[in-house]
């Protein structure tokens, strides 16, 4: 059978690139949200999809990144985009501290603890922790990002920032998947005992999966803060984590195209059915249930990795 995925992907990219020139501001903004969810979904995919860790608190890392940007920008007027690596770093370091004691938990236990994590984060933000998060009103007056003196403020400007970052993410995460690191995450997902018994430091890889996922969520938080100029705890609630979880599960755990499709379906599709606002969650739930029964691997499950054929002449007598 002919593989026409490259054609489909190319067509998708062209359509997406042209979209802001034809759509109105409202729909461009919808695409921007989809893009942010795609980036977040891809970052959660490292943890949930590849390492198989049931992490339902990803919004917490997103919040940490967004608040880092908001606080530093509004207090010290440091340009927002400069704060992107710092936001990633802060989320990553916090992930390291938070994940260390909980990564040995299995499946459902980890799920419960990570739900706790996102709630604790939200409540801490509401209670104006350290007096710097602005309580339930949040933080406003975050400045717009600038690239080489160009001020990003309109939705179509943000479109290129967000989807540009998504493209970089896809590029880097594709490499990550197809590497010793990516395989190690899959080994521990498939059979932790066998992975450890093959010489893989499973605790270390779980931790690093969390850190990589959190760094990316933190950077996505930076873009979110810049886009909104106002952030509040309610943007990072438990439901947000559930949506990200669903994006990965629906699209296909461990599959980059799957997660992007999942972001479109879960963050984009409901916008098309606005008029059925009350019924859309019902339809949604029904689809999710059907998926879990009939297509447990997601809509676009990952394809097997491909390796170069062995050099001829190799063979007998390994040493």
């Amino acid at each position: 059978m002919k593989d026409y995925r490259p054609v489909v992907y190319a067509a998708f990219c062209v359509l997406l690139l042209l979209a802001p020139f034809f759509l109105n501001a409202y729909w461009v903004d919808v695409l921007n949200n989809v893009g942010l969810y795609a980036i977040l979904g891809l970052s959660l995919n490292i943890i949930l999809g590849h390492a198989g860790l049931f992490h339902m608190g990803h919004a917490a890392f997103y919040a940490m990144g967004a608040y880092t940007t908001a606080i530093i920008n509004t207090t010290y007027q440091i340009p927002v985009l400069w704060l992107m690596p710092i936001s990633g770093l802060v989320a990553g370091v916090l992930a390291l501290v938070i994940a260390r004691p909980i990564i040995h938990l299995r499946g459902d236990y980890l799920l419960i603890v990570t739900i706790g994590l996102v709630e604790i984060t939200r409540i801490a933000l509401v209670n104006n922790i350290f007096g710097i998060t602005g309580g339930s009103n949040g933080i406003f007056g975050i400045s717009r990002p600038e690239i080489f003196g160009f001020r990003i403020r309109r939705p179509e400007h943000f479109f290129f920032l967000i989807w540009g970052f998504a493209a970089v993410t896809v590029f880097l995460f594709h490499r990550l998947e197809n590497s010793r690191f990516g395989r190690a995450l899959n080994y521990l997902r498939e059979d932790e005992t066998a992975a450890e018994g093959s010489g893989i430091n499973t605790a270390h890889y779980k931790l690093i999966a969390f850190v990589v996922g959190a760094v990316w969520a933190g950077m996505a938080g930076n873009i979110f803060a810049a886009k909104m100029t106002i952030i509040a705890p309610e943007s990072f609630n438990f439901w947000e984590s559930v949506i990200l979880f669903m994006i990965v599960l629906l699209g296909g755990r461990g599959s980059i195209p799957g997660v992007i499709l999942g972001a479109f379906l879960i963050a984009g599709l409901p916008e098309l059915f606005r008029q059925f606002a009350s019924a859309r969650m019902l339809i949604f739930g029904a689809i999710m249930i059907a998926m879990m029964i009939f297509r447990t691997e997601g809509i676009l499950p990952p394809r097997p990795r491909r390796y170069p054929a062995p050099a001829s002449g190799g063979g007998e007598g390994a040493s």
Partner: peptide, 28 residues
């Protein structure tokens, strides 16, 4: 105790893991 859904080659690569070093950043 294999990694049942992964390829035969990838199963053996699991054994190579402890003799190699590249991490996440090197991979990216």
């Amino acid at each position: 105790r294999l990694f049942p859904k992964m390829s035969v080659l990838e199963n053996v690569l699991a054994g190579c893991h402890c003799r190699t070093h590249a991490g996440a950043v090197a991979a990216m």
